[in-house]
Nucleic acid binder design. Sequence first.
DNA 1: CGATCACATGTTTACGTGAACATACAGAAG
DNA 2: CTTCTGTATGTTCACGTAAACATGTGATCG
Lengths: 328, 328
Amino acid sequence: MADVAALAGVSSQTVSRVANNRSNVEEETRRRVLSAMRMLGYRPNTAARALVTGHFRALGLISFGLSSFGNARTVDAVTRAAQRAGYTVNMIAIESQTERAVHEAFDRLTMQAVDGIVLVEAQILDTPALRLPAGVPVVMADGDASHRHPMVDTDQARGARLVTRHLLDLGHETVWHVAGPEDSYAARRRTESWHATLKEAGASVPGVLFGDWSAASGYEAGRALARRPGVTAVFAANDQMALGVMRAMAEAGCRIPQDVSVAGFDDLDESAYLTPPLTTVRQNFDVVAERIVSLMIDQIESRGERSAAAYVVPELIVRQSTAAPPPR
Amino acid sequence: MADVAALAGVSSQTVSRVANNRSNVEEETRRRVLSAMRMLGYRPNTAARALVTGHFRALGLISFGLSSFGNARTVDAVTRAAQRAGYTVNMIAIESQTERAVHEAFDRLTMQAVDGIVLVEAQILDTPALRLPAGVPVVMADGDASHRHPMVDTDQARGARLVTRHLLDLGHETVWHVAGPEDSYAARRRTESWHATLKEAGASVPGVLFGDWSAASGYEAGRALARRPGVTAVFAANDQMALGVMRAMAEAGCRIPQDVSVAGFDDLDESAYLTPPLTTVRQNFDVVAERIVSLMIDQIESRGERSAAAYVVPELIVRQSTAAPPPR
DNA sequence: CGATCACATGTTTACGTGAACATACAGAAG
DNA sequence: CTTCTGTATGTTCACGTAAACATGTGATCG
C-alpha cells in the first residue's frame, strides 16, 4: 500500500480510500491511484483489514457432509446466496453427528475468520446442552424453532401432509412410511405430519421403518415392505430412499405404480427421470438459502440476537410413481 | 491476550508461547496461563496471527457448483482431506464457466485469506490465457496436465476404456456414446478413449451425442438414440446422464439390458439401486482428494512451483444394465 | 471582505499477534 | 569464586490497514 501511495504521489490513506470506494476522492487522484495499483499488482491484505475492522466478510458453514443430496443442494444454495451478498463461505464437514464434533467445528470456525455460522441439518443434539459460544451469530438451516438461534427451513410438515393426502386421495387405505434418521429434525417433522394426516383421515397408522437417507437404507426398508401383504402406498422421507424402495419392489415383482405407489421428498433433478418418474415434494432450496443468508446478515450487522423461524412452502410434484391402488 | 497475561501474571509473549505450544515454558507457568485463558474465554485472533505469520491455514476451492454429483463428491472429499490436514476450506461456486468468472473467483479468494487454491472441474479455458496471478499455490482437480499447475484426476481414459471394452466383449458390434460438455477435460478424455478403444477393436465409430452431465440432457440423447435402429449399447459419460438414457429407452419400449445395454461413469451411491442397477466406472474420489490436498500442502510449505500430474485408477463395476446384445 | 463551510488530502494511531532480541537467573566447569 | 552456558521470561517492534483527527484550499454567504 505504501508503494502504491508513493508511486501515485499520495498518502497511504488516500490509497485506502480508493480501495474502499469512498466518495471523497478527486476523480483524477482516483485514476492515478488505480493505475498505480494495477502497475504494482496491489491487493489489499484481508488479514490486516480484518484486524482493523473486526469483520471478515466470511460465513462459516457446518454440515454433515455432502452425500445427502438435500444437504448438497442446501450447501450449494447457501454458498451462492452468500456470494451474492459479498460473503465467502468457509465450510466444515462433520463426520460423526455428536455434540462434541459440532463444538469442535465451531471452535475451528470462530478461530478461523468468520462473521457468523450456518448450521445445516442440525441433528437433535441435546438442546439445552448445545450451548454454542455466544457472540457469534448463528443461523440454523433445519433445526428446532425453540433454539435460541434463528432458523430457516422448508415447511416439512406441510410437505409430508401433501404427499400423504395425495396418496389417500388416490384411494389407498393407508400409507406406509420410510422415515429418515430418528435424530434429524426434518425427518421427525415429516414423520409426525404423516402420522397426523393419517389420523385425521381416519386411516390406520402402520409402523414406521427407519432409514438413514441413503438409497441403501431405502432398499432394506423396501424389502421388508415387499414381504408384507397389503402394502399399496409408501411415502419415503427423501428421494434417495424412495429410489431404494422402488428397487426392492421391482425385485420382489411388484409393479410401480400398478401394485404399489411410491413417493419421495426433495425433488432432485434426477427424480423426473427415474423409472418410473417419481412423485415427490419439491423443496425450494434456493429460497431457504436466501433467507438464511439474509437473516445471518441482519444478525451480523445489527448484532441483534433475536430469534426467528422462517418456513418455506414446498410443492407437491405428481409424476408416475403414484396411482390408485389395485382392485382387491 | 493482554488480559490473559495480566491475570496469569506473565507477559503477553509467554501467553503467545503457550497458545502456540512452544516447548520452553515451565509447566507451572503453562498451567497458570491455560487456566487464565479458559477463565477469560480467550481465543486467538486469526487475523492478527495471519498478519504476522503470513498464512491462514485455509484453502480456497473454486468449483462449478454442487449439482453435478461428481463435483459434490469431490468437494466433499477435498473438504474432509483438508480438515484432516488442519486446513479449512473456503468455497466459491462459479455460475458461468467463463475465464472471467474464474478470475473473479480467484481474486476474491486471494483477497480472502487463503494459502492456496484448488480448482475443481476446470473447463477448457484457453490455456495460455488462463494466467492465474502468481504467488498463490494452485492445484487442479481434473484439468490438463500441460498446465503450469499440479493436477490430480481419475484416470479417465482408463475408465472409459474399461466400459467400452466391457460392452464390446459382451458381443456388441459397437458402442454409442453420450458425452459430457465439450469444454470439460474429463468429458473430452472419456470420449477420446472411447473412440480409441472402438478403433482398436475394429468397430465402427458412431457419432457422439453431447450432454451437459444432467439427467435431462441424458434423456434427450436417449430419445435420439431410441429412434435410431441398431443401437444396442450406450456408454454415458456419467451416471446422471445414463439415468436419463435409461428413462428414454424405457419410454420408447426398449428393455434394459435385453434390448439395449447402458453404462455410466462415477458410481454414485444410488447407481446400485436404479432399475436396473447400473453398470458403471467407480471413481475413487477420496484418494483423488487426498492427493490434491497433499500436493497443495507441499506447495504451500516448500513454495516449490513444480508441476505434477497424478492419476488415480478407477474400477469397472458390472451390474445389470449391461448384457449381450439381442440376437438379430 | 471576512467568516464559514465543504471537501480533498495528510498524519497519527490502534488493531492482536509472533519474531527478534534482551535480560535474569541457576547450575556447571575451571 | 569466576566464567560460561542454557533456559525461562520480558521488551520492542513490525505486520497492513482503516478510523479519527488535523490540515489546507477554494467557494459561498451575509
